[in-house]
Amino acid sequence: MTRYLINRLLISIPTLLAISIVVFAILALAPGDPMAEFATNPAITAEVRENIRRSLGLDQPIYIRYVKWLWAFMQGDMGFSFTSRSPVLNLILQRLPTTLWIVGTAYIIGALLAVPLGVISALKRYTLFDQVVTTLAFVGFSLPTFFTGILFIIIFSVQLRWFPFIYNSTLRVTDWASFVAQVRQSIMPVTVLVLFQAAVLMRFVRASMLEQMNRDYVRTARAKGLQEWVVVNRHILRNALIPVVTLVALDIPSVFTGALVTEQIFRVPGIGALLVDSIFRGDTPVVMAITFIYAILIVIFNLVADILYSILDPRVQYTR
């Protein structure tokens, strides 16, 4: 087990290096210029522009910039944003709570909905309930989030005027009234995400349940005369949820980048919105930091999923 862990950790280092090189190279080789907006500004002469460029370290060759960036990143220094002149880390930390609140809530609700629905629908396969739930799930994951979001705004904000359609991030939760306001403005973005999340996960849970239900050990359990409740909970569910756990673990990194699209529709100022804005402004350090943190999370949670899998399912061999 320990050897396997060390092996996997060692493999993930070159992966991360390769990803960072890919992202850095894309940014560095791109034809755009972060100084482009200064070029049209008459107050900034070519000389000043050159000085700014030097102060940002943009006059050095790519590979030196890469090594410097990597070294700083490993020490937790992600540099300064080109446009707001504040440390990238601060920008990210500023946005993180909003994203975690919206996307995290959606994630938890989605899982809590999907697992029971998937289990029941598998147990009652081909009944009306199953057909309704699977059709809804199908619709749910064919509906792109940007369309659901817009539909929600049209129906619930414009027509019914139930919820505000712009997320107010300056709202501080201090008393009951502000808490209600916070919940009200979170309902639509969270629901949009829940619909999609739950649809995908529910289909997966159902398929996984169906795969286990016809196994020999289930027949044995029934033959022993165990109650249906025990067979489902202690036998089928335990095995069916193993792949579900890994899928959930693999998806956790997306909680960090937030839902790019959903945040954009409801103007939620989360990490996703920061990333999109920074891409448009050519703010390389911020883009690089968010993309790379995301990549690190993906690699880490891949590892976590593998380890979880081997803990939950002893049949999995550690050595590959």
């Binding site: 992202v23 883009v287 993906i298």
Partner: peptide, 15 residues
């Protein structure tokens, strides 16, 4: 393990 959507946005925007 590449961050898909961010990378997609980035490449399209830059090129």
């Amino acid at each position: 393990s590449l961050p898909q959507l961010p990378l997609l946005l980035l490449v399209i925007f830059l090129f």
